[in-house]
Simulated scan of single mutants.
Amino acid sequence: MNLSHKTLLQDVSLNVAPGELLAVCGPNGAGKSSLMRLISGELKPSTGDVRWHGHSLAEWPLLKLARQRALMQQRAEVGFDYSALEIILLGRHPHHQGASRPQDIQIALAALQEVDAGHLAEQIYTTLSGGEQARIQMARVLAQIWEASAGPRLLLLDEPTAALDPRQQHRILEIARRWANKGDVAVIAIVHDLNLAAQYADRIALMRDGRLQALGDVASIMTPTAVEACFDLPCILLSHPDGGTPMIAARRQH
């Protein structure tokens, strides 16, 4: 894929299945956000294809696609004094395209509870902390794909833990993991922290220079060899004391 004759992604091939959380990791400029923009349909590939349920995104009616797939962007600018509940209701627009119905409000309130933010419903969104705003945006995308009757669904998270404190980072990924565990929701999340990704993901994709460098389960990716090749960072392998999840620690540079 190229934009203005600059190749952004090349030789990237991957899939994600319902019930799975795939974490996409890599250094800055690796092409992670470009990949997310392709998967979401914001960008079109110059070669290759992005497919959902076996069909190219271009073949899907936009409304039907929006009911099955939702994107939580890295930054969400809000220029109006919307309440948290009103922000979440924006996620229901593909389902009614007009005034919110009682069931939309019910789903929005349930999504607020899902992210443990029911007390924020009437708060003005722009007055919330970064962590609170992230939870509201998470509730918005959950509300968008809430109905299981829509069939298998796709949740796209573009750096959902950026600029959040450790507690909020875990909270967001715990929610993503819980939704993947439903069995009919596939989750793709861009995560900068490899150790954080390892705790919640089923598989990890490592990207570098616009290419997919490695793809596999957590144990196969969380190795010094794979991490050093992707990040140019000498490191050692550890085991998380709570559960044994593989962890990577950087070697000290003398």
Results as ranks from 00 to 15, higher is better:
residue 3 L to K: 03
residue 4 S to E: 05
residue 6 K to W: 14
residue 8 L to R: 00
residue 10 Q to R: 02
residue 10 Q to I: 07
residue 13 S to C: 13
residue 14 L to I: 07
residue 17 A to W: 08
residue 18 P to H: 04
residue 19 G to K: 01
residue 24 V to L: 07
residue 28 N to K: 01
residue 29 G to L: 11
residue 30 A to S: 14
residue 32 K to E: 00
residue 39 I to W: 10
residue 40 S to A: 08
residue 44 K to A: 15
residue 45 P to K: 03
residue 46 S to V: 09
residue 47 T to M: 10
residue 48 G to C: 07
residue 50 V to I: 14
residue 61 P to V: 06
residue 64 K to D: 13
residue 71 L to D: 03
residue 72 M to C: 14
residue 74 Q to A: 04
residue 87 I to P: 03
residue 90 L to H: 13
residue 93 H to R: 07
residue 94 P to H: 08
residue 94 P to D: 10
residue 94 P to L: 04
residue 99 A to E: 15
residue 99 A to H: 13
residue 100 S to P: 15
residue 101 R to C: 12
residue 102 P to A: 00
residue 106 Q to T: 12
residue 106 Q to L: 12
residue 114 E to W: 02
residue 115 V to E: 10
residue 129 S to W: 00
residue 132 E to V: 03
residue 133 Q to M: 07
residue 134 A to G: 02
residue 141 V to M: 06
residue 142 L to R: 04
residue 144 Q to I: 09
residue 148 A to L: 11
residue 151 G to D: 00
residue 153 R to D: 15
residue 157 L to P: 06
residue 161 T to P: 10
residue 163 A to M: 07
residue 164 L to D: 06
residue 166 P to T: 01
residue 170 H to L: 11
residue 170 H to W: 12
residue 172 I to W: 04
residue 173 L to G: 02
residue 173 L to S: 06
residue 174 E to I: 03
residue 175 I to D: 02
residue 178 R to G: 12
residue 180 A to V: 04
residue 183 G to D: 12
residue 185 V to K: 01
residue 186 A to Y: 09
residue 190 I to Q: 01
residue 194 L to W: 04
residue 197 A to G: 05
residue 199 Q to G: 09
residue 200 Y to F: 15
residue 204 I to L: 07
residue 207 M to G: 01
residue 207 M to E: 02
residue 208 R to I: 07
residue 208 R to A: 08
residue 219 A to Y: 11
residue 225 T to C: 07
residue 226 A to P: 08
residue 226 A to E: 09
residue 227 V to A: 14
residue 233 L to F: 04
residue 240 H to G: 06
residue 241 P to A: 02
residue 243 G to Q: 02
residue 243 G to P: 11
residue 245 T to V: 14
residue 245 T to A: 07
residue 253 Q to L: 12
